[in-house]
């Protein structure tokens, strides 16, 4: 009992202290909503945002992630909590491009600056709800096409390729698969099969081994992320095939050596670490009275191949 009282008192004084500090400095508060922090990509993004907060020092960052990629209810809750807390800006990577439109509209009506990054909200739903909101982010489709084009260039017309997709329904996964298909069309490749491996190495290893058995004449593989590309590379090694080209996406550390020694042909870096930080910069501009963002503010992507 005594302990509880003490804890309550301590908590109250902490809150008071925090409020006092806030009032004294009047730093704008930015709420950052990301997807699964179990994903390397968002973990790096969070690190980047924290470093950015420390470097700029003129705003306060409150970051929220989710348990897994499909748990978008917790994102909606996070938006509502930020509205209650009265943050100045919300910077959000939506887990679902449709479900997030309505809660974000509420935030905008509450006078909060909202910046949508990483995955674009659905245009149709935005129109339906009468929401005008710019998108700051990379062109997943264009990026995938860059990697796919490298493969197309090497294989030429009628090259036999397969696609390893991300989670069915995940927007970035869909965009990347579309980008790969763009390359297939442009280089007149022969797309044999397209299957999901849920972004995961072991599943990609299994699924691709079986695809290779069914189609031993596969010449190229386009994986929607690098974790899956690693699984494909391992499958090729155990099958003793070094004649099949692999491209990936994300440029995670683990594929660095594979690009260098040629086990992978290319991957795409969309500078995830800077992505949240850039979006926060833009949000703060608007908070300080800068012009509203419009349309699609594209963030840099880079093709990574062996040097």
């Amino acid at each position: 009992m005594k302990f509880m009282k003490f804890a309550a008192a301590a908590a109250t004084s902490l809150v008071l202290l925090a409020n006092a500090a806030q009032a004294a400095e009047e730093k704008p508060v930015v709420g950052l909503i990301m997807k699964s922090l179990a994903n390397e990509f968002f973990q790096n993004m969070l690190e980047g945002a924290k470093a950015h907060e420390a470097m700029r020092g003129d705003y306060e960052l409150r970051a929220v992630g989710m348990q897994n990629e499909t748990d978008f209810e917790s994102q909606i809750n996070a938006v509502e909590n930020f509205i209650t807390q009265g943050v100045d800006a919300i910077v959000v990577a939506p887990a679902d491009s449709r479900a997030m439109v309505r809660p974000l509209k509420k935030a905008m009506q509450a006078g909060i600056v909202v910046v949508n990054f990483d995955v674009a909200l659905d245009e149709e739903v935005k129109q339906q709800q009468g929401v005008e909101l710019a998108f700051v982010g990379p062109d997943n489709r264009g990026g995938a096409k860059m990697a796919g084009d490298v493969l197309g260039e090497k294989l030429g017309k009628d090259g036999k390729v397969v696609i390893i997709e991300g989670n069915p329904g995940a927007d970035n996964g869909i965009q990347r698969a579309l980008g790969f298909e763009d390359s297939v069309k442009q280089y007149e490749l022969n797309l044999i099969e397209s299957r999901t491996a849920h972004w995961e190495t072991e599943e990609a290893n299994t699924v691709f081994s079986n695809m290779l058995t069914a189609h031993p004449d596969i010449q190229g593989v386009m994986a929607a992320n690098d974790s899956m590309a690693i699984g494909v590379v391992k499958a090729l090694e155990s099958a003793g095939r070094d004649d099949i080209l692999v491209v990936g996406f994300d440029n995670i550390d683990a594929v660095g050596p594979m690009i260098e020694d040629g086990r992978m042909l290319a991957t795409v870096d969309q500078f995830g670490q800077d992505m949240a930080a850039n979006a926060i910069d833009m949000a703060l501009e608007v908070v300080r009275g800068g012009p509203e963002l419009e349309g699609w503010v594209k963030t840099p992507i880079k093709l990574v191949v062996a040097e």
Partner: peptide
């Protein structure tokens, strides 16, 4: 076995 087979350790393995 997972590590030996794939030569990586992934924290999202085994879901």
């Amino acid at each position: 076995v997972y590590m030996a087979r794939l030569n990586i350790s992934s924290p999202i393995a085994g879901i």
